[in-house]
Design a binder for these strands. Structure first.
Lengths: 213, 213
DNA sequence: TTTAGTATCACACAATTGTGTGAGAAAAGC
DNA sequence: GCTTTTCTCACACAATTGTGTGATACTAAA
């Protein structure tokens, strides 16, 4: 039987080593490569065939969400499983929207992880048990809860968020972006509404949570 | 030769599995147990001898720093290596202060990790290369830089930080703590100075970073 | 081409935050 | 017991943030 070709992507070398070691023992899975960020993933896919991509959500350079989108466009046959510590239900929907096949928490057991890869290979959706519960829970709470949980934040808005996170004042942000303070204030206003927060503190917390910055 | 007895502590099961797999191949290291938080570590140490403790800095229930302190009091012979993603030089000094033997970044290679454990076992201090550089750098910048890098934040101040993180206004915090707004403002003022930040946003970011909240 | 979204700006005003300074009482540490 | 830290509060004022409302221009999608 042909082994399932798996590509690992995580910015932590130890994580990669650990995963490799885990899969080394399994006869049906073969780790064909590793990558430290999304760009390396795309590069790798150009040259080598891959069945399942195990992807860390949090990565520098190009994060998991963005990578998934790109991979799905250029290699729609590759199954993507997101691996992350994040257990916020909020992100799941956008995950499947960009074309991920599965989503596993890093604190899942290795058996679950291996099974997840096999399931993904067979085209099944994969979800951490913990997350499945969360999903069902949230469905119970609101009949039609939040569709696109993570709202679309524009490029400009993200620039503003990043500068706020660096303790810039509105005036300083305006100077940095060569716009008026009014404009910056408007961006902030819109961000507050979009992100459903009360002030900059809440915004930055959520931005970090969502991997925006 | 007797194997080095290693206890692993991390809140992510996959991390534990990965580390176990890595060490399984090494003849001089034996993983004698795993723990998901500091409390479990202390519990384990009561019953079993351990040479080296590999500890995740970020853990729920009882974090790495706190655990190190406890371990050092009750089992001073156990070498503690902190394993973390955090690369802020700021935390290193306080680490050694509480009695850790070493500090490794999670993106270190597995070879480095194994060597680190052996070094720690022999009583050597262990530092990620990356961090050593940082330390030297910071020594260059300021002859006598920041001694106790993470300042002592009082209980009350932490309460304030937590409430700010929850988007409470000064008035709301005052109400919640049954004190005047002036008092809350003073706490904030003191926190800004202690934490060396410009505003609440910076404070919350650093608080998250330091594991205060 | 009409609509929806993005990015820009103005003006005004309320609310909140942050700063400077000083100080008293209680708790903790030595 | 004495000292230091912690927690408390006041008053005043400057700076910044956040809100409400409306408007123009450009772009991309339907």
């Amino acid at each position: 039987m042909e082994k399932i070709k798996v590509l690992l992507a995580d910015d932590h070398q130890i994580m990669l080593d650990g995963l490799k070691a885990i899969f080394a023992k399994d006869k049906s899975i073969e780790v064909v490569g590793t990558a430290n960020n999304g760009l390396e993933v795309l590069e790798f896919l150009k040259n080598e065939p891959v069945d399942v991509l195990l992807l860390d959500l949090q990565m520098p350079v190009m994060d998991g969400l963005e990578t998934t989108m790109h991979v799905n466009k250029s290699h729609p046959d590759v199954r993507v499983i997101m691996l992350t510590t994040n257990d916020e239900g909020s992100i799941i929907t956008s995950l499947f929207k960009v074309g991920a096949t599965g989503y596993l928490l890093k604190n899942a057991s290795k058996e679950y992880l291996i099974q997840g890869i096999k399931d993904a290979f067979e085209g099944k959706k994969v979800l951490s048990a913990h997350l499945t519960e969360k999903m069902i829970e949230s469905l119970h709470d609101n009949p039609k809860p939040r569709e696109g949980e993570i709202p679309k934040i524009t490029k400009r808005e993200i620039e503003v968020v990043k500068l706020i996170a660096q303790e810039f004042t509105t005036q300083e942000i305006a100077d940095a972006l060569f716009v008026s303070t009014n404009t910056v204030a408007t961006h902030k206003r819109n961000l507050f509404v979009k992100m459903d927060v009360k002030n900059s503190v809440g915004m930055i917390k959520k931005a970090v949570d969502w991997g925006l910055i």
